[in-house]
Structures are given as structure tokens and as C-alpha cells.
Nucleic acid binder design. Structure first.
Length: 195
DNA sequence: AGTGCGATTGACT
DNA sequence: GTCAATCGCACTA
């Protein structure tokens, strides 16, 4: 069921952990896809690694929206990244979704990715965005309303949560701001299996 | 107007 | 394990 905005934690780190186990629902003309979040990273408002660190720009403005909106950007000119904004309106902070456990619509994800290997469909931020047909047209979308893309919860129990340094960044790389569900095969990078 | 740099991925040794 | 492709965007002048 749909998640209301008041249910989102106010703190970005808390939200990054809280999003684990929640569902991403994507509705397109081609069909419905659902995935369970198993890996996230927190980007704080005073965080040198965050796109918002040097203030609002045309690219990062969605990060400054109230918690529960989509911030989409292109990494390395090729991969789409999906973030969930956090905190109050005007504060540039959010959570990057790094991996999903496919729940429904797997055939459509395979079509979008151009491959059929289940574990590679949504393991990694660029891959999950491609599988779910995430693009800049979803920029700033309210994820607390049913539409093309929204967030949902169910009765699922989340397993043990691990933490690590964030992946692929050089600035402010030390804090443990990456969170993942332990022993889930769809987690990218360190911690995917017993470690 | 020009430059440098990534919150990655996929191909290859 | 290593490494290059690739391009939008922020920054400098």
C-alpha cells in the first residue's frame, strides 16, 4: 500500500535505513513493475559528496524538495540514478537507491535491460533505473501519489541490516552511509554475501 | 566558449 | 582483477 509523506523519517540516515524493505512501484504503458529496496546510500545536506553541497542548480533542484520526491540524474553520461529526497523543503538531501530485489514484472525488466540474467537486472543503481525505465521525465515526481512511480509498503520483515562506506565517491568517503540487507543476492558490491 | 570531472557499467586479461 | 567509454553539467574566463 501507498506510503504517506508523514510516515517518512525526518532524518536522512534514518530514512536510508527505513527505505530498506519498501517497494518501488513503476507503472508504464508497457506494464507494471515492482521491486523491493535492498540497498541505499544517504547523502546529507552538509556532505561534500552530495550534489547539493554547493547549493541549488538546475540539475539538483529536486534534491531540495520535501521528503518523498524523485531526484533523477545521469551518472557518467550513461546511467540514470534514482534518489528519494529527504528532509524539509529547501534542504538538499536525499537517499540513492542502489539495488532492488525484483518482485513483479520481471519479463518487462528483462526487456528494458536487454538481458535475461535475473541477478543482473536490478543489482546496481544504473541497472535498476534501466530495468524500471527511469528517466528524466520522472524528475521531481511525488512518490507519495499513485502514478508512474511511487513507493509502497507491505507486511514484509526486513532481515539484518549492514552498513559500509559509500561506493564510487572520493569526497567525504569515510562515513558509513551505505546500508543494505545482509545476505541478499541483489545487493551490489561489498556485503552482498556474508562478510 | 572551453574544460574537467564523475553517486557506473560492461568488456576484457 | 583492470580499464575505457561517454556526455551533461558546473565552473572558469
Amino acid at each position: 500500500m501507498l506510503i504517506h509523506r508523514e510516515e517518512f523519517p525526518d532524518n536522512t540516515v534514518t530514512q536510508a535505513k527505513w527505505l530498506l524493505g519498501k517497494l518501488v512501484v513503476r507503472h508504464t504503458d508497457a506494464g507494471l513493475m515492482i521491486g523491493r529496496i535492498v540497498e541505499t546510500e544517504a547523502y546529507l545536506h552538509d556532505d561534500e559528496a552530495a550534489h547539493s553541497f554547493r547549493g541549488m542548480t538546475p540539475r539538483n533542484r529536486s534534491l531540495f524538495l520535501e521528503k518523498g520526491h524523485a531526484y533523477v540524474y545521469i551518472a557518467y553520461g550513461v546511467s540514470m540514478m534514482l534518489n528519494v529526497s529527504a528532509g524539509k523543503a529547501g534542504v538538499g538531501t536525499g537517499v540513492l537507491l542502489r539495488a532492488l530485489d525484483p518482485v513483479s514484472g520481471i519479463e518487462l525488466m528483462e526487456k528494458n535491460r536487454g538481458i535475461a540474467k535475473l541477478r543482473d537486472l536490478t543489482r546496481g543503481p544504473g541497472r535498476l533505473a534501466q530495468a524500471f525505465a527511469i528517466d528524466l521525465s520522472l524528475q521531481g515526481l511525488d512518490l507519495c501519489r499513485k502514478g508512474e512511480l511511487w513507493l509502497a509498503k507491505d507486511g514484509h520483515k526486513v532481515g539484518k541490516i549492514g552498513a559500509s562506506k559509500r561506493i564510487g565517491i572520493t569526497k567525504n568517503a569515510d562515513p558509513l552511509l551505505r546500508f543494505f540487507v545482509k545476505d541478499n543476492p541483489f545487493v551490489s558490491g561489498p556485503g552482498a554475501l556474508n562478510r
